[in-house]
Amino acid sequence: MPEPLPADVDSWTLQEGISMTILQNPLRTRIIVTGKGEKFYVPPHWHAAHDENHVVIKGRLIVTQDGVRRVLGPENGVCLTRRGVVHSLEGFPGEELILEETATEPEDTEQKIFFFRNMGAPGMLSSPLGIMQVLYYGDTYPKFPTGFRWLERGLIVVVGGWIASLFGYQLPDKRLRLDPSRFPRDKKD
């Protein structure tokens, strides 16, 4: 099982050529891509309970939101992704990129940091059950070709919420918590 990152670690490597830093005032995450190593890519996914802001500080970023693909640079300012919108992020091979991410609510930004701390824990990215557990607690659902939200949610709940725990997986940083608003009874997909 992955080892936790110390709570006071403000920067860590996600993979070769890609690191993450926590910045204060305002609280936000900064992803730094050197252009060496693998290309930066976050596959299509969506969030049920929070909106996100992305700002390109340096370089170019491909953002796809509900099938609409755009190339963003520093001149574009904030790119807002509303909850429920399927989105992906992609850098350009061999290019430097500095990207900042926040949620629209400060407490959601804090939870995003705990999400990234868990994903960045040593060994986590090579552990499918561990990844699914972090997705479950982190309000993140993969996009499937079928587009059935109930199936996307169900996979994360069953595998990340139940099966990973049965196999003894625990979040390295337990400050990431499940938000009860993610499964509202009055909302339909």
Rank of each mutant, 00 (worst) to 15 (best):
P184F: 01
V55Y: 10
I131Y: 04
T104N: 08
A103N: 13
P180C: 05
L171F: 02
K36A: 06
N25H: 11
N25Y: 00
T81K: 09
E90H: 11
D179V: 04
M132S: 11
L27W: 01
L97D: 13
M119Q: 11
V158E: 01
V157N: 07
N118Q: 10
Y169T: 00
Q111N: 11
K174T: 12
S181W: 02
P43V: 07
D179H: 08
N53H: 14
T109G: 09
E96I: 01
V55A: 04
S127R: 02
P180G: 05
G154N: 01
G168W: 06
P2K: 11
R177P: 05
L5F: 04
G120Y: 02
T21M: 04
I163E: 03
L129D: 07
A48C: 12
G77Q: 11
D179I: 06
P6F: 01
V86R: 15
P74M: 02
H50G: 04
A121C: 09
E101T: 14
Q24N: 09
E38H: 05
I22W: 03
R175I: 03
V56P: 14
E96Y: 00
K174I: 02
H54E: 15
R117N: 08
S11R: 15
N76T: 03
R83K: 15
R28Q: 15
V78M: 12
G154M: 00
M1Y: 12
V159T: 04
P2R: 11
I98V: 15
P4S: 09
A49C: 07
W150H: 12
S11L: 07
I18R: 08
E100C: 09
Q133Y: 03
I156Y: 00
E152F: 05
R30E: 15
F144E: 10
K112L: 14
R175W: 03
V63F: 15
W46M: 14
R153A: 07
D10G: 12
V78L: 11
Q15S: 12
L5E: 06
E107H: 10
F92C: 03
E105D: 11
E100M: 06
R149C: 05
G130P: 07
A7C: 01
T102E: 09
Q15E: 14
K143D: 14
R175A: 11
Q170R: 15
V85D: 12
K174W: 00
L61G: 12
L155K: 00
S88M: 12
T13Y: 00
L99C: 12
L23I: 02
E152P: 06
P6Y: 01
R83I: 00
T64N: 14
D51R: 04
K36S: 11
G59P: 08
E95I: 00
G120W: 02
G37M: 07
P172M: 06
V85F: 03
K188I: 09
W162K: 08
